[in-house]
Design a protein around this nucleic acid. Structure first.
Lengths: 162, 162
DNA sequence: ACAACTGATACTATATTGATATCAATTAAG
DNA sequence: CTTAATTGATATCAATATAGTATCAGTTGT
Protein backbone atom coordinates (compact mmCIF):
# COMPACT_ATOMS: atom_id res chain seq x y z
CA UNK A 1 0.00 0.00 0.00
CA UNK A 2 1.77 3.02 -1.25
CA UNK A 3 0.93 6.25 0.53
CA UNK A 4 2.59 8.53 -2.00
CA UNK A 5 2.99 7.84 -5.69
CA UNK A 6 5.89 9.23 -7.67
CA UNK A 7 3.79 12.12 -8.93
CA UNK A 8 2.87 13.28 -5.46
CA UNK A 9 6.41 12.77 -4.25
CA UNK A 10 7.86 14.76 -7.11
CA UNK A 11 5.21 17.45 -6.70
CA UNK A 12 5.99 17.99 -3.04
CA UNK A 13 9.72 18.13 -3.57
CA UNK A 14 9.37 20.45 -6.55
CA UNK A 15 7.22 22.76 -4.47
CA UNK A 16 9.79 22.69 -1.70
CA UNK A 17 12.41 23.80 -4.18
CA UNK A 18 10.19 26.57 -5.49
CA UNK A 19 9.48 27.61 -1.94
CA UNK A 20 13.17 27.73 -1.16
CA UNK A 21 13.77 30.13 -4.05
CA UNK A 22 10.68 32.21 -3.78
CA UNK A 23 10.41 35.18 -6.09
CA UNK A 24 12.49 33.57 -8.83
CA UNK A 25 11.41 31.37 -11.69
CA UNK A 26 12.92 27.91 -11.52
CA UNK A 27 13.00 25.78 -14.65
CA UNK A 28 11.80 22.20 -14.86
CA UNK A 29 15.27 21.28 -16.01
CA UNK A 30 16.82 22.72 -12.86
CA UNK A 31 14.35 20.93 -10.62
CA UNK A 32 14.72 17.65 -12.46
CA UNK A 33 18.48 17.64 -12.33
CA UNK A 34 18.80 18.81 -8.77
CA UNK A 35 16.11 16.56 -7.37
CA UNK A 36 16.89 13.66 -9.66
CA UNK A 37 13.53 13.30 -11.33
CA UNK A 38 12.75 12.34 -14.93
CA UNK A 39 12.47 15.63 -16.80
CA UNK A 40 9.38 15.05 -18.95
CA UNK A 41 7.53 13.30 -16.19
CA UNK A 42 8.16 16.21 -13.88
CA UNK A 43 6.88 18.60 -16.52
CA UNK A 44 3.59 16.79 -16.53
CA UNK A 45 3.41 17.09 -12.78
CA UNK A 46 4.17 20.81 -12.94
CA UNK A 47 1.50 21.40 -15.56
CA UNK A 48 -1.02 19.64 -13.38
CA UNK A 49 -0.13 21.98 -10.55
CA UNK A 50 -0.57 24.97 -12.84
CA UNK A 51 -4.05 23.77 -13.68
CA UNK A 52 -4.75 23.69 -9.97
CA UNK A 53 -3.29 27.16 -9.49
CA UNK A 54 -0.63 26.06 -7.06
CA UNK A 55 2.13 27.49 -9.24
CA UNK A 56 2.52 29.89 -12.16
CA UNK A 57 4.86 29.68 -15.09
CA UNK A 58 6.78 31.89 -17.47
CA UNK A 59 7.67 30.69 -20.94
CA UNK A 60 10.87 31.25 -22.85
CA UNK A 61 14.46 31.81 -21.86
CA UNK A 62 14.80 32.48 -18.13
CA UNK A 63 11.32 31.09 -17.75
CA UNK A 64 10.21 28.51 -15.26
CA UNK A 65 7.87 28.03 -12.36
CA UNK A 66 7.06 29.90 -9.19
CA UNK A 67 4.72 29.34 -6.26
CA UNK A 68 1.33 30.96 -6.80
CA UNK A 69 0.32 30.97 -3.15
CA UNK A 70 1.55 30.94 0.38
CA UNK A 71 3.42 27.69 1.12
CA UNK A 72 1.35 27.36 4.26
CA UNK A 73 -1.72 27.16 2.10
CA UNK A 74 -0.50 24.16 0.14
CA UNK A 75 -1.22 20.97 2.03
CA UNK A 76 -0.03 17.49 1.31
CA UNK A 77 -3.61 16.33 1.46
CA UNK A 78 -4.51 18.53 -1.49
CA UNK A 79 -1.54 17.21 -3.45
CA UNK A 80 -2.54 13.64 -2.75
CA UNK A 81 -6.03 14.42 -3.92
CA UNK A 82 -4.74 15.99 -7.11
CA UNK A 83 -2.39 13.18 -8.04
CA UNK A 84 -3.96 10.14 -6.41
CA UNK A 85 -7.58 11.07 -6.10
CA UNK A 86 -9.67 11.47 -3.00
CA UNK A 87 -8.86 9.11 -0.19
CA UNK A 88 -11.63 6.56 -0.20
CA UNK A 89 -12.43 3.29 1.45
CA UNK A 90 -13.40 1.31 -1.60
CA UNK A 91 -14.68 3.00 -4.71
CA UNK A 92 -17.99 1.24 -5.06
CA UNK A 93 -19.15 1.99 -1.56
CA UNK A 94 -19.66 5.62 -2.33
CA UNK A 95 -21.84 4.99 -5.30
CA UNK A 96 -24.24 2.72 -3.48
CA UNK A 97 -27.55 4.02 -2.27
CA UNK A 98 -27.54 2.05 0.94
CA UNK A 99 -24.94 -0.37 2.17
CA UNK A 100 -25.56 -3.55 0.25
CA UNK A 101 -25.10 -5.66 3.32
CA UNK A 102 -24.57 -5.19 6.97
CA UNK A 103 -21.00 -6.39 7.32
CA UNK A 104 -19.86 -4.06 4.57
CA UNK A 105 -21.65 -1.27 6.37
CA UNK A 106 -20.03 -1.90 9.73
CA UNK A 107 -16.66 -2.19 8.07
CA UNK A 108 -17.17 1.03 6.17
CA UNK A 109 -18.08 2.86 9.31
CA UNK A 110 -14.82 1.86 10.95
CA UNK A 111 -12.68 2.60 7.94
CA UNK A 112 -14.28 5.98 7.45
CA UNK A 113 -13.37 6.87 10.97
CA UNK A 114 -9.76 6.10 10.15
CA UNK A 115 -10.10 8.00 6.91
CA UNK A 116 -10.98 11.09 8.89
CA UNK A 117 -7.88 10.67 11.02
CA UNK A 118 -5.71 10.32 7.95
CA UNK A 119 -7.30 13.36 6.34
CA UNK A 120 -6.71 15.38 9.45
CA UNK A 121 -3.08 14.35 9.67
CA UNK A 122 -2.28 15.09 6.04
CA UNK A 123 -4.09 18.39 6.32
CA UNK A 124 -1.54 19.48 8.91
CA UNK A 125 1.46 18.92 6.70
CA UNK A 126 1.93 21.94 4.44
CA UNK A 127 4.74 22.98 2.15
CA UNK A 128 5.35 25.86 4.52
CA UNK A 129 5.82 23.55 7.48
CA UNK A 130 8.15 21.30 5.54
CA UNK A 131 10.16 24.30 4.40
CA UNK A 132 10.66 25.43 7.96
CA UNK A 133 11.82 21.97 8.97
CA UNK A 134 14.15 22.02 6.03
CA UNK A 135 15.77 25.23 7.15
CA UNK A 136 15.79 24.38 10.81
CA UNK A 137 17.94 21.34 10.20
CA UNK A 138 20.75 22.76 8.12
CA UNK A 139 21.54 25.25 5.41
CA UNK A 140 21.28 22.60 2.75
CA UNK A 141 18.89 24.48 0.55
CA UNK A 142 19.62 28.16 1.01
CA UNK A 143 17.04 30.52 -0.40
CA UNK A 144 18.30 33.30 -2.57
CA UNK A 145 18.61 36.62 -0.87
CA UNK A 146 17.09 39.75 -2.34
CA UNK A 147 19.21 41.22 -5.07
CA UNK A 148 21.29 38.14 -5.42
CA UNK A 149 21.79 37.18 -9.03
CA UNK A 150 23.06 33.71 -9.66
CA UNK A 151 24.23 33.11 -13.21
CA UNK A 152 22.20 29.98 -13.14
CA UNK A 153 19.18 28.89 -11.20
CA UNK A 154 20.88 25.68 -10.34
CA UNK A 155 22.27 25.25 -6.91
CA UNK A 156 25.90 24.27 -6.68
CA UNK A 157 26.72 20.63 -6.68
CA UNK A 158 27.07 19.27 -3.20
CA UNK A 159 24.94 21.90 -1.59
CA UNK A 160 21.84 19.81 -1.64
CA UNK A 161 23.16 16.32 -1.98
CA UNK A 162 24.57 15.22 1.24
CA UNK B 1 -6.28 6.77 -3.31
CA UNK B 2 -7.99 3.57 -2.44
CA UNK B 3 -7.62 2.45 1.15
CA UNK B 4 -8.97 -1.05 0.63
CA UNK B 5 -8.73 -3.09 -2.53
CA UNK B 6 -11.36 -5.69 -3.41
CA UNK B 7 -9.22 -8.49 -2.04
CA UNK B 8 -8.93 -6.89 1.37
CA UNK B 9 -12.59 -5.94 1.35
CA UNK B 10 -13.67 -9.46 0.46
CA UNK B 11 -11.25 -10.93 2.98
CA UNK B 12 -12.62 -8.90 5.84
CA UNK B 13 -16.22 -9.61 5.00
CA UNK B 14 -15.52 -13.30 4.52
CA UNK B 15 -13.85 -13.40 7.92
CA UNK B 16 -16.82 -11.65 9.45
CA UNK B 17 -19.07 -14.31 8.04
CA UNK B 18 -16.83 -17.08 9.36
CA UNK B 19 -16.75 -15.35 12.70
CA UNK B 20 -20.53 -15.16 12.77
CA UNK B 21 -20.80 -18.91 12.24
CA UNK B 22 -17.92 -20.02 14.36
CA UNK B 23 -17.42 -23.72 14.82
CA UNK B 24 -18.95 -24.58 11.47
CA UNK B 25 -17.32 -24.87 8.10
CA UNK B 26 -18.65 -22.36 5.60
CA UNK B 27 -18.12 -22.98 1.90
CA UNK B 28 -16.71 -20.45 -0.52
CA UNK B 29 -19.90 -20.80 -2.50
CA UNK B 30 -22.00 -19.81 0.50
CA UNK B 31 -19.83 -16.79 1.25
CA UNK B 32 -19.74 -15.70 -2.36
CA UNK B 33 -23.48 -15.87 -2.84
CA UNK B 34 -24.40 -14.31 0.47
CA UNK B 35 -21.86 -11.51 0.28
CA UNK B 36 -22.12 -11.03 -3.46
CA UNK B 37 -18.52 -11.68 -4.41
CA UNK B 38 -17.12 -13.40 -7.51
CA UNK B 39 -16.72 -17.02 -6.53
CA UNK B 40 -13.33 -17.86 -8.00
CA UNK B 41 -11.84 -14.59 -6.96
CA UNK B 42 -12.97 -15.16 -3.40
CA UNK B 43 -11.43 -18.61 -3.46
CA UNK B 44 -8.06 -17.08 -4.23
CA UNK B 45 -8.49 -14.72 -1.31
CA UNK B 46 -9.41 -17.58 1.02
CA UNK B 47 -6.40 -19.61 -0.05
CA UNK B 48 -4.15 -16.68 0.67
CA UNK B 49 -5.60 -16.48 4.16
CA UNK B 50 -4.97 -20.19 4.66
CA UNK B 51 -1.34 -19.66 3.75
CA UNK B 52 -1.23 -17.00 6.45
CA UNK B 53 -2.93 -19.29 8.95
CA UNK B 54 -5.88 -17.02 9.53
CA UNK B 55 -8.33 -19.73 8.54
CA UNK B 56 -8.37 -23.50 8.07
CA UNK B 57 -10.23 -25.53 5.49
CA UNK B 58 -11.87 -28.89 5.08
CA UNK B 59 -12.14 -30.50 1.67
CA UNK B 60 -15.02 -32.47 0.23
CA UNK B 61 -18.75 -32.40 0.78
CA UNK B 62 -19.74 -30.31 3.80
CA UNK B 63 -16.27 -28.83 3.64
CA UNK B 64 -15.42 -25.17 3.75
CA UNK B 65 -13.55 -22.67 5.84
CA UNK B 66 -13.34 -21.79 9.49
CA UNK B 67 -11.45 -19.22 11.54
CA UNK B 68 -8.12 -20.52 12.78
CA UNK B 69 -7.70 -17.98 15.54
CA UNK B 70 -9.48 -15.63 17.87
CA UNK B 71 -11.28 -12.91 15.87
CA UNK B 72 -9.72 -10.35 18.19
CA UNK B 73 -6.34 -11.47 17.00
CA UNK B 74 -7.08 -10.73 13.36
CA UNK B 75 -6.51 -7.07 12.62
CA UNK B 76 -7.39 -5.11 9.52
CA UNK B 77 -3.82 -3.93 9.39
CA UNK B 78 -2.57 -7.46 8.93
CA UNK B 79 -5.10 -8.06 6.18
CA UNK B 80 -4.04 -4.91 4.38
CA UNK B 81 -0.45 -6.04 4.61
CA UNK B 82 -1.30 -9.44 3.21
CA UNK B 83 -3.32 -8.19 0.27
CA UNK B 84 -1.89 -4.75 -0.40
CA UNK B 85 1.58 -4.97 1.01
CA UNK B 86 3.12 -3.06 3.85
CA UNK B 87 1.95 0.50 4.22
CA UNK B 88 4.84 2.55 2.95
CA UNK B 89 5.57 6.11 2.09
CA UNK B 90 7.10 5.57 -1.29
CA UNK B 91 8.70 2.29 -2.19
CA UNK B 92 12.09 3.49 -3.21
CA UNK B 93 12.76 5.42 -0.03
CA UNK B 94 13.18 2.32 2.05
CA UNK B 95 15.62 0.71 -0.27
CA UNK B 96 17.92 3.71 -0.26
CA UNK B 97 20.90 3.82 2.01
CA UNK B 98 20.25 7.23 3.43
CA UNK B 99 17.83 9.88 2.22
CA UNK B 100 19.26 10.94 -1.11
CA UNK B 101 18.53 14.56 -0.46
CA UNK B 102 17.34 16.69 2.36
CA UNK B 103 13.89 17.60 1.11
CA UNK B 104 13.02 13.99 0.52
CA UNK B 105 14.29 13.24 4.00
CA UNK B 106 12.20 15.89 5.72
CA UNK B 107 9.17 14.81 3.76
CA UNK B 108 9.70 11.20 4.67
CA UNK B 109 9.98 12.01 8.32
CA UNK B 110 6.60 13.72 8.28
CA UNK B 111 4.89 11.04 6.28
CA UNK B 112 6.32 8.30 8.47
CA UNK B 113 4.79 10.00 11.46
CA UNK B 114 1.42 9.81 9.74
CA UNK B 115 2.15 6.24 8.78
CA UNK B 116 2.45 5.42 12.46
CA UNK B 117 -0.94 6.95 13.12
CA UNK B 118 -2.50 4.96 10.32
CA UNK B 119 -0.86 1.77 11.53
CA UNK B 120 -2.09 2.35 15.02
CA UNK B 121 -5.62 3.02 13.87
CA UNK B 122 -5.84 -0.01 11.64
CA UNK B 123 -4.30 -2.11 14.37
CA UNK B 124 -7.27 -1.29 16.58
CA UNK B 125 -9.82 -2.60 14.14
CA UNK B 126 -10.05 -6.36 14.52
CA UNK B 127 -12.50 -8.88 13.17
CA UNK B 128 -13.65 -9.39 16.75
CA UNK B 129 -14.48 -5.72 17.20
CA UNK B 130 -16.33 -5.59 13.92
CA UNK B 131 -18.29 -8.69 14.85
CA UNK B 132 -19.42 -7.11 18.09
CA UNK B 133 -20.55 -4.00 16.24
CA UNK B 134 -22.33 -6.21 13.80
CA UNK B 135 -24.29 -7.86 16.55
CA UNK B 136 -24.85 -4.70 18.52
CA UNK B 137 -27.41 -4.00 15.86
CA UNK B 138 -27.50 -0.23 15.89
CA UNK B 139 -28.44 1.11 12.54
CA UNK B 140 -25.74 3.62 11.86
CA UNK B 141 -26.52 4.32 8.30
CA UNK B 142 -26.88 6.12 6.13
CA UNK B 143 -26.55 9.14 8.38
CA UNK B 144 -23.94 7.65 10.69
CA UNK B 145 -25.67 9.21 13.65
CA UNK B 146 -24.51 6.86 16.32
CA UNK B 147 -23.38 8.21 19.63
CA UNK B 148 -19.80 7.06 19.36
CA UNK B 149 -18.81 9.51 16.71
CA UNK B 150 -17.11 12.53 18.24
CA UNK B 151 -17.64 15.95 16.75
CA UNK B 152 -14.06 16.18 15.62
CA UNK B 153 -14.59 13.28 13.36
CA UNK B 154 -17.76 14.47 11.77
CA UNK B 155 -17.79 14.27 8.06
CA UNK B 156 -16.61 17.23 6.11
CA UNK B 157 -18.16 18.47 2.93
CA UNK B 158 -17.11 16.45 -0.01
CA UNK B 159 -17.12 13.14 1.76
CA UNK B 160 -20.05 11.57 0.06
CA UNK B 161 -21.92 8.97 1.95
CA UNK B 162 -24.25 7.68 -0.67
C1' DA C 1 -20.60 -43.78 -7.60
C1' DC C 2 -21.04 -39.13 -7.42
C1' DA C 3 -21.88 -34.55 -6.31
C1' DA C 4 -20.06 -30.96 -3.35
C1' DC C 5 -16.17 -29.39 -1.97
C1' DT C 6 -10.94 -27.42 -1.77
C1' DG C 7 -5.91 -27.09 -3.84
C1' DA C 8 -3.29 -25.38 -7.23
C1' DT C 9 -2.54 -22.92 -11.36
C1' DA C 10 -2.90 -20.67 -15.69
C1' DC C 11 -4.98 -17.24 -18.05
C1' DT C 12 -7.29 -12.72 -19.59
C1' DA C 13 -8.77 -7.93 -19.36
C1' DT C 14 -8.48 -3.47 -17.67
C1' DA C 15 -6.61 0.32 -14.99
C1' DT C 16 -2.88 2.65 -12.92
C1' DT C 17 1.69 4.13 -12.65
C1' DG C 18 5.90 5.72 -14.39
C1' DA C 19 8.21 7.40 -18.15
C1' DT C 20 9.47 9.13 -22.95
C1' DA C 21 8.95 11.74 -27.28
C1' DT C 22 7.40 15.37 -30.32
C1' DC C 23 6.21 19.80 -31.96
C1' DA C 24 4.41 24.38 -31.61
C1' DA C 25 4.61 28.79 -29.18
C1' DT C 26 7.08 32.12 -26.27
C1' DT C 27 10.91 34.89 -24.73
C1' DA C 28 15.61 36.82 -23.41
C1' DA C 29 19.85 37.77 -25.16
C1' DG C 30 23.34 38.37 -28.52
C1' DC D 1 16.62 39.06 -36.50
C1' DT D 2 18.16 34.85 -35.15
C1' DT D 3 18.78 31.47 -31.90
C1' DA D 4 18.69 28.82 -27.76
C1' DA D 5 16.15 28.01 -23.66
C1' DT D 6 12.05 27.34 -22.13
C1' DT D 7 6.81 26.06 -21.37
C1' DG D 8 2.11 24.15 -23.48
C1' DA D 9 -0.06 20.44 -25.13
C1' DT D 10 -0.29 15.83 -26.53
C1' DA D 11 0.58 11.14 -27.97
C1' DT D 12 2.60 7.01 -26.98
C1' DC D 13 4.60 3.25 -24.38
C1' DA D 14 6.09 -0.25 -20.94
C1' DA D 15 5.59 -2.22 -16.52
C1' DT D 16 2.86 -3.32 -12.79
C1' DA D 17 -1.31 -3.90 -10.13
C1' DT D 18 -6.06 -5.04 -9.87
C1' DA D 19 -10.10 -7.70 -10.82
C1' DG D 20 -11.92 -11.57 -12.54
C1' DT D 21 -12.32 -16.32 -15.11
C1' DA D 22 -11.34 -21.17 -16.18
C1' DT D 23 -9.62 -25.74 -15.55
C1' DC D 24 -8.38 -29.96 -13.57
C1' DA D 25 -6.92 -32.89 -9.93
C1' DG D 26 -7.79 -34.52 -5.31
C1' DT D 27 -10.95 -35.21 -1.06
C1' DT D 28 -15.10 -36.59 1.32
C1' DG D 29 -20.03 -37.31 2.95
C1' DT D 30 -24.09 -39.53 1.45
Amino acid sequence: MKVLTKKTDYAIRALLMLGAKKGAYVSAKAIASEQDMPYQFLRGVLQEMIRHHLIVSKEGVQGGFMLAKDPDEIGVRQLIEIFQGKVQVSECMFRRQICANRSRCVLRHEIMRIEQVVHHEFEQVTIGKLLRKLHAGANMMPSLRDGEKPDSLKLKEGVVLQ
